[in-house]
């Protein structure tokens, strides 16, 4: 077993030799790699030509990292690649799979070339392995980071979409709340309601929770706080659409709802709000 680490200088020399070997056999190794990718049924979302084009870029970047030792260009490329292929449904295991395949293809070609000189082969692999690991790591991390960035972005988008504050009449806002409400969203909702009251000069706010499947005591308390805070700003809150389950939960956990103005459904809530604001809705007589 070899325990002596090769000196830095000899590593550089070996890597240089490696790079020239990879450059010489670029066409053949690249084809071999693309073939293995298809065989392993990776990147099925992409066409053969696309795979080959990407394979070429990855290959060149790969060789460049081995030559320069700097992963920055590869990082940028990996990010760019991820940006392009994530929307097409490429999975993490596929990306890691192809990088590991390339690693394997190249290692095999090194075995073939140096099999006569076992000692040299060992030293070549010593130089190659850490660099190859680093590359696999860089590409994998780049891909996962890009995915996480997209997930964060989407969460943000969902959060913004999920709680619109709409003005339906002069001084009347409605808030159709949909989906699960956690503490963070509840807090955000409160802020939005209060800001909405100020900017729209609202007198009445109808909060409709028909689309909320469940509520816990934290969120219920938050609801009560929202009602109180709105009152401090001179607005009345009407809560509508409490499902039987939610009503039961609220009663069971003993939330004090005496201060809360609740109406069965959104229509009733809007009618009540119109009454508070002094509106009278009247159907027009249609003649003929």
């Amino acid at each position: 077993m070899r325990t002596i680490q090769p000196s830095a200088e000899s590593t550089i020399l070996l890597l240089r030799e490696l790079v020239s070997h990879l450059r010489e056999n670029r066409t053949q190794l690249r084809e071999e790699w693309a073939r293995r990718i298809t065989e392993a049924q990776l990147l099925t979302a992409m066409t053969k030509e696309e795979i080959f084009a990407e394979a070429t870029s990855v290959y060149d970047n790969y060789v460049e990292v081995l030559e320069t030792g700097s992963v920055e260009a590869l990082q940028a490329y990996a990010r760019n690649l991820s940006e392009r292929i994530i929307p097409r449904g490429v999975e993490t295991h596929e990306v890691l799979g192809i990088v590991l395949l390339l690693r394997d293809v190249l290692a095999r070609s090194l075995f073939k070339k140096y099999q006569a000189d076992f000692d040299l082969l060992n030293r070549v692999l010593d130089a190659y392995e850490p660099a190859a690991n680093r590359i696999a790591n860089t590409v994998g991390v780049g891909f996962v980071q890009e995915r996480e960035r997209i997930i964060r972005q989407q969460q943000e988008a969902i959060r913004e979409l999920s709680t619109p504050v709409l003005q339906v009449r002069e001084r009347l806002l409605i808030l159709p709340m949909i989906g699960v409400i956690d503490s963070q969203r509840a807090r955000q909702l409160t802020e939005q309601v209060l800001r909405g009251i100020r900017t729209n000069r609202a007198k009445v706010v109808v909060m409709d929770i028909t689309g909320v499947p469940a509520i816990d005591s934290n969120v219920a308390n938050h609801l009560v706080q929202t009602v109180d805070a709105s009152r401090l700003m001179g607005a009345t809150v009407i809560v509508t659409g409490l499902s039987p389950e939610i009503a039961q939960t609220l009663v069971t956990i003993g939330v004090d709802l005496s201060k809360m103005n609740t109406v069965g459904d959104l229509q009733g809530g809007i009618e009540e709000a119109e009454r508070l604001l002094g509106y009278k809705v009247q159907a027009e007589q249609i003649s003929g």
Partner: peptide
């Protein structure tokens, strides 16, 4: 009463 103040007040139980 400003929105932030209103929210802080109810959290302190000052209604």
């Amino acid at each position: 009463i400003q929105p932030e103040v209103a929210f802080a007040m109810v959290q302190l139980g000052l209604t």
